[in-house]
Design a protein around this nucleic acid. Structure first.
Lengths: 340, 340
DNA sequence: CTGTTAGCGCGTTCAC
DNA sequence: GTGAACGCGCTAACAG
């Protein structure tokens, strides 16, 4: 090793192999044809002996390519996000990139903070599963020309590649299923719509399905994920006003489905019997909850994988106009919409 | 901006503020008292105008401190790991570190790969939630003196700080609870023990509790997480052999609890009625599954947070002998062990 | 208080 | 084929 306890550098290797740094560098970068067999041997040997590994820091500094991708996730405890992360991770591995994961905890401030941070680490691209972003930040990102793709939801007035679910199609499939099963009073339950296109699109499709069907009653409600009481209230109210007819709830995402199921449980309402229940996002425990919960499963892993592929395309210079890539969901029917 | 479309550098800022790089550097590092008010103003202005952000790459290269921490996670889809991650993430934020997350997908090869990778990014410390590591890798890590802590499980013959659950205490609490509830035939269900100390300790404590209690029957079984048939077989067999007496299953971790619940469901055995069920690790859906599943909740977030604190202590030069920090679990009683 | 200088570890001309 | 020398963006002496 070298005099200090520190890590071996390219110079140490060069010295040990009795050559210059240039040749070592070439060896590392695969320009093997240019080196004599003997020299190759010596370098290989020296590297092994010193347990040398090139510093990605210095390399990035010099070349301007860090092979780093930043991922900003709003809520790491959300299974949807984790599955997506898993897909992104796989794609990174396949393409030789390393992922810098940042969890914003649903705080807009953190989102800002991490955007800065990632940029200061010279990431080559960013994937965002956002809560919402302030406009200054967006301006900066655009002018910095950092390749970026959004997952799941768009950001208003921000031209950017988006990868996500075909919300209209999926919500239509879900709603039709409920109608086909004979439900006549339908409640669309969502977190506050805000400017979240995902929620809006799902709601719109839901409403569209029921248009011109005067035998149907459709309603919608927005509740905060954290407000258990309000949720209980909304569900109870809906149920009581439609005692006579088959009623069902369509929940806009997995996290809310969990809360809704808890609320129904507390109210003593059994899904599949007193009330229908269908939730967006597959849940690993869906079959274990009572008679099972019907879900609309998203191809989350593929969404993540595709997102990373898109960023890389941009990194490699693709200048095509902003694209939107949507995937189809899959309805998984269980007891909560079939048992009556 | 500067001539190229590239990012502003410290030199650009110095030029714009009509000063040298040093002063800018000082400004950035908070040595504000040393700068004249006027100069401070000019620098502040220039930074804002150029939207300058220091390159952490160059900074790390120079100082040898990257403020980067590597996290190696065996399975990112495991809720336990995610909660831990969440705690680590929070601690990183609080301490000004950035997290590099690597998911090994339970593959030992990937673990190797990422260890190399992290080291090449000059991370200052590593947190590992491992599957198992080859010895060469360990040797390298030790000689490289990279601070490292293990989460949840130890690695045989590898002296390293460990943070995790007090397995003996937790398993004792769980087993006693089952005994107190009147169960007389007890099955400890785990993934293959291998060299995983966590599983071994839990099993040992389970066995200890029943020692000298000749009115109890205790058994244990090891099944692969992916082998649904085998799991079903084991559970059915256990149940049938103990028809006459109250029987309960203690499952060693959350992922396996999910599979066990599915298997019982398929067998038509209702937990809480025909058979008792208690699982390590809290599950968000535990209360929704039938009569509810009793769990032993780990303080996962705190474990993650503490792990990061420990790495940082090492980074800052703490040379105390290898430590082991354990946390207490909490038994959350639900229907699966109380309904009979 | 401020500017000048010398590297950190590496990749890259450009000569030999 | 090979190596010397320069600079990426930044910080840390060392002068003024």
């Amino acid at each position: 090793m070298n005099r200090k306890g520190a890590r071996a550098t390219i110079s140490d290797v060069a010295k040990a192999a009795q050559t210059g740094k240039t040749s070592v560098s070439r060896y590392l970068n695969g320009e093997l044809q240019v080196l004599s067999a003997d020299l190759k041997q010596r370098i290989e040997h020296a590297i092994a002996a010193l347990d040398y590994r090139p510093s990605q820091m210095a390399r990035g500094l010099k070349r301007g390519r860090t092979r780093l991708i930043g991922l900003i996730i709003a809520d790491i405890t959300n299974p949807y996000s984790v599955d997506v992360l898993s897909g992104i991770e796989a794609a990174c591995r396949a393409q030789g990139f390393t992922l810098l994961v940042c969890n914003t905890n649903n705080e807009v401030d953190q989102e800002q903070h991490y955007l800065q941070l990632l940029s200061s680490y010279q990431v080559e691209g960013i994937v965002v599963n956002a809560v919402g972003m302030r406009e200054e930040a967006l301006g900066r990102l655009q002018q910095s020309l950092l390749p970026m793709v959004l997952i799941d939801r768009k950001i208003p007035d921000f031209a950017c590649d988006v990868i996500g679910l075909n919300n209209t199609e999926a919500a239509t499939v879900a709603t039709r299923h409920l109608i086909d099963q004979g439900y006549r009073a339908l409640l669309f339950l969502s977190e506050p719509l805000g400017l979240v296109n995902t929620r809006q699109e799902r709601l719109e499709a839901f409403v569209s399905c029921a248009r011109d069907r005067h035998d149907l009653i459709t309603e919608s409600a927005e509740v905060a994920l954290t407000d258990a009481d309000q949720l209980e209230q909304v569900l109870l109210d809906f149920y009581q006003r439609h005692r006579g007819e088959p009623a069902a709830v369509l929940v806009a995402n997995g996290a809310l489905t969990l809360q809704a199921a808890r609320a129904l449980r507390r109210l003593g309402l059994n899904w599949g019997e007193e009330i229908g229940l269908l939730g967006f996002d597959e849940l690993e425990w869906a079959e274990l909850a009572g008679v099972g919960i019907t879900t609309l499963k998203q191809p989350t892993w593929q969404i993540g994988y595709a997102a990373l592929e898109q960023v890389i395309r941009r990194i490699e210079g693709d200048n095509a106009p902003v694209s939107e890539q949507v995937f189809s969901g899959e309805l998984i029917v269980r007891g909560s919409t079939t048992t009556r």
